[in-house]
């Protein structure tokens, strides 16, 4: 929480911001927390901590700005600082090494698979969900923020504290990884991946 305190809200104003602007996002917050932690209790704790922090730092929230993005940023930081260590992550990766790879904005936008749009549309929710959940947390995060929650690149840049160019390239890589997973499912399920009609 490095924002400068802009003003002080009265108790009544605080309550009204909290109830009117923060609480309506609880569903999205929980969904994000669950997809980060894969654990119901951890997700609940993470959302609860986020809301308590949001209240404590409410004076650094500027009314009229995007409350959802502000809350997501707090949640993401709490996750990194407190939960990442203990959460049940499927893949342990060397973070430093991966970081230099996908923080480079220099990405070649190529189609990497012969996966077909029709096969993707035929897939079940579970297959899509499992494919998403199998991605490393930083890739999963950009897809959740962009495709599930509809944040703009600029909002994502603020939530994640990374430049917009990095948002764009990380998203592209994330979707390519996702497509590779989906292609695997498609082949396994016998969906058509190559033939043109």
């Amino acid at each position: 929480m490095s924002e400068v305190q802009r003003r002080k809200y009265s108790q009544v104003e605080k309550n009204s911001i909290f109830d009117g602007e923060f609480m309506p996002h609880i569903d999205s917050m929980y969904n994000f927390a669950y997809r980060l932690t894969f654990d119901e209790d951890d997700a609940k704790d993470l959302v609860q901590d986020t809301y308590l922090k949001a209240y404590r730092f409410i004076n650094s929230f500027e009314q009229g700005t995007n409350a959802k993005a502000w809350l997501f940023r707090i949640l993401k930081n709490s996750f990194i600082n407190e939960y990442r260590k203990k959460s049940k992550q499927p893949a342990k990766v060397d973070y430093q090494e991966v970081e230099t790879y996908y923080n480079s904005d220099d990405v070649d936008f190529q189609g990497t698979t012969d996966l077909r749009a029709e096969s993707v549309k035929d897939m079940l929710g579970d297959e899509i969900s499992n494919a998403l959940n199998s991605l490393a947390v930083d890739f999963r995060t950009v897809i959740i923020l962009c495709d599930l929650e509809g944040f703009t690149y600029e909002e994502m840049a603020k939530i994640l504290d990374i430049p917009i160019g990095t948002v764009r390239s990380r998203l592209h890589r994330a979707r390519n990884l996702l497509k590779e997973k989906l292609k695997g499912y498609a082949q396994h399920m016998g969906y058509d991946t190559e033939e043109e009609e």
């Binding site: 609880i26 929980y30 969904n31 897939m123 899509i128 897809i143 495709d147 599930l148």
Partner: peptide, 26 residues
């Protein structure tokens, strides 16, 4: 293809059901 990916993500990654007691506990 990219459009299909975005659509299935948005429509098929169902929202996790939020525990009822969460808002109250907050």
């Amino acid at each position: 293809l990219e459009q299909a990916i975005r659509e299935v993500l948005k429509n098929k990654c169902t929202k996790q059901e939020v525990p009822k007691e969460l808002a109250q506990s907050i």
